[in-house]
């Protein structure tokens, strides 16, 4: 593990952290016209993101042990970006359908939030446990590696939340914001795939 590679993975962690919260903020704008801006809508959104993190951390951790290669993580992250890119064209029909069939209650809001975000956000949150596995040279430094990964992605979360709310939303529509983050996520995934080949050449 070169120092360069180490830094690159943490930088990607930061960018994915930005994207995760950016997607959540943009999703809130997608849901509000359908389910109102009541406190329940925010609760549904936050719960859905937490559900994704739960699933992503758990599954991502297991996949990381099974295949500890940044290429595998990269493919998952590219898939997350690709799925999010489907959101802008699909959001309106999915939300209309939810409203027609399930109504506008908390259950419907939860379903709609999950339909939009659950799978891509789960794939996205593979990153943290995976990065720990990739960056871990020996158990002696496990604590600081995990700490670095969680703090850098959380800094990204903060930047993503504030940056989306205070800047992007004043310049772009929520569908464009979603597309921007989908592209950013896919680029990060490609970066992770490229990293792996880099490491391989060096190892070889």
């Amino acid at each position: 593990m070169t120092h360069w590679r180490h830094t690159a993975i943490l930088c990607i962690g930061f960018l994915l952290g930005v994207a995760l919260m950016g997607v959540q903020m943009a999703s809130s704008r997608l849901l509000t016209p359908y389910f109102g801006s009541g406190i329940e809508v925010w609760a549904s959104l936050i719960s859905t993101v937490m559900l994704s993190l739960m699933a992503g951390y758990y599954i991502g951790g297991r996949v990381a042990d099974f295949a500890p290669r940044s290429q595998v993580l990269g493919v998952c992250v590219v898939a997350a970006g690709a799925l999010l890119a489907l959101t802008p064209p699909l959001a309106t029909p999915v939300l209309d359908w939810t409203l027609e069939t399930m109504g506008d209650g908390v259950g419907a809001a939860l379903f709609a939030a999950a339909a939009i975000m659950f799978v891509p956000m789960t794939l996205l949150s593979f990153f943290s446990p995976y990065a720990v596995r990739l960056l871990l040279a020996d158990a002696q430094h496990g604590g600081r590696v995990a700490g670095a990964v969680y703090s850098i992605t959380t800094i990204g979360n903060i930047v993503g939340t504030l940056g989306t709310a205070l800047y992007l939303m004043t310049k772009l529509g929520s569908r464009d914001i979603m597309m921007t983050f989908a592209a950013l996520i896919a680029a990060c995934g490609v970066g992770l795939i490229a990293l792996r080949s880099e490491g391989q050449t060096r190892a070889a």
Binding site: R29, K171, L172, G173, S174, R175
Partner: peptide
Amino acid sequence: LTDDFAPVES
């Protein structure tokens, strides 16, 4: 203002 783009805060 539209559902997609409504920068009401700014």
